[in-house]
Amino acid sequence: MKKAPDSDHWLVRPVTIRRFWQVSAVVLLLTVLVQISIKVKGYFVVDGWFAFGALFGFLSCVAMVLVAKALGPLLKRPTTYYTPGDRDV
């Protein structure tokens, strides 16, 4: 195993990343729009609403990330917290 200088792999080129975002945007849009023709069965009314899955998934993740971020200062400690004598865990 050795360190090498930054490679220009096609997956990490700016043009690929730009295209990835474009394709993703189209796919995301399609998964929502296709609900016009495909009925999502709602077991509790709300989950059958148009784009409920998209909105619920997005907002749930935002909430989880924010909760984790808020808990960070309370819970995060240096890796040597339990073993102060060691340089690292």
Partner: peptide, 21 residues
């Protein structure tokens, strides 16, 4: 079809949340 679509929406938009956040 409905179930697959629901979970695709759920997962793909959580992926969007990941990259935005």
């Amino acid at each position: 079809a409905g179930k697959v679509l629901f979970y695709l929406q759920l997962l793909l938009f959580s992926g969007l949340a990941f990259f935005l956040l």
